[in-house]
Design a protein around this nucleic acid. Sequence first.
DNA 1: TGTACATCAGTGAACGCGCGTTCACTGATGTAC
DNA 2: TGTACATCAGTGAACGCGCGTTCACTGATGTAC
Lengths: 219, 219
Amino acid sequence: MTDVTSEKKARSGRPTATAVARAQNPRGQGRRLREDLINAASNLLATAGDPDQVSMRAVARAAGVSPMAAYRHFADRDELLAAALDSCFMEFAKLFETTADIEDPFDRLGAVGRAYFEFANDENGHYRVLFSQPMPFDKSDFNILESHSGSAFVQLITLVQACLDANDDPRDATYVSYQVWTWVHGMVDLRITHAALAWPPAEQMLADLQTSLGLVRHS
Amino acid sequence: MTDVTSEKKARSGRPTATAVARAQNPRGQGRRLREDLINAASNLLATAGDPDQVSMRAVARAAGVSPMAAYRHFADRDELLAAALDSCFMEFAKLFETTADIEDPFDRLGAVGRAYFEFANDENGHYRVLFSQPMPFDKSDFNILESHSGSAFVQLITLVQACLDANDDPRDATYVSYQVWTWVHGMVDLRITHAALAWPPAEQMLADLQTSLGLVRHS
DNA sequence: TGTACATCAGTGAACGCGCGTTCACTGATGTAC
DNA sequence: TGTACATCAGTGAACGCGCGTTCACTGATGTAC
């Protein structure tokens, strides 16, 4: 069955980046390039959704700099990517901040859910890098779990606890938080990976998640 | 902060395969190699969990054959990988078969859930290839959604419908099936990608999924 | 029964690619004297 | 005030790698005459 006429195409979806004119930083401002590189890497991660596809050379290209310039700031590729991942997590962590002014815990949980969904939808490359594949960097794995997503998860637990308390609900907040997270993750992840399916509206699924898990105020 | 002493290491986790002694197939048996290649590719997918990391050359190596031999059976890499993906889906599709003898729909739903979980756990590379990343092959994308996972999803809907009927539950079976699938997927996917977290027992989470979604028999 | 030949399964060398990383460098700018 | 020099930001060529794919081939085996 080799009689296939599929046209030849570039093998991978590896993101390319066109060079950008760029003036040398003034003395003492060398660290600016570091941030530029992190941003460039982060943008490439956003479109690739997979660290393996983000190369040193592509990052340098996107930053308008020779491949070697990156080595002034990062020992190797892993270090650059770990820094870019960290930066993605900082962006993600803002989710909870944006809902900080909502007092009712049930409303706030709903808002966080919608914000999580929108983050995954709008920045789905970033989302996938953070949550949809095995953490690729040994060292930062620990850090990320313990600090970034760890702290986000801790915030979720706190919020869930507030909901349970408001209902005199004796369930374990950590366990319920795992239920919330797994479900929301499943929703956004399958939507990204299987976009062609006829998905029900996200708002409805998120609202039903709250009711199914008993995270709405008892009347 | 470039003063890092991290030891150098191979860049990617690209799976390698040691050659295997292999006799030439007798005349007329050339198709055997085709299956060997598909199996080899499938095994590499299982350990890589990412089609991008499965190369023509690695597959040929694993099958004990020169890289060019594959081109007798597949026009190009995409065609081989599409065939390997198909074969992974066949394996997955057996999940429903193994529970076919359970009559009670609620019990069967639980059994399917546990089987799904075990598949993801035992063959987590296969699971990730099938469900945890954007379908990479334009053509087979359609096929896979429409036939393989489509048909698995249809089976899930049928099973959920049976549960709803047994309870005189008027909800839409398709919608509830999306709820079931997203949640189970979230559970198994996050467990794989964030294995370092302190996950609650899977059995409990699966059982609670059924009760939360009202997929247990009314007393 | 023998032999020329078509068919089949698979090989081996070579191509151009992008990659991570090395090494040695360039050229501007601040500073000590 | 002038100048030698250290520092800094970044460059350019080159390495060896695995990759997908091309082209031309080899050597065994069945078959027509």
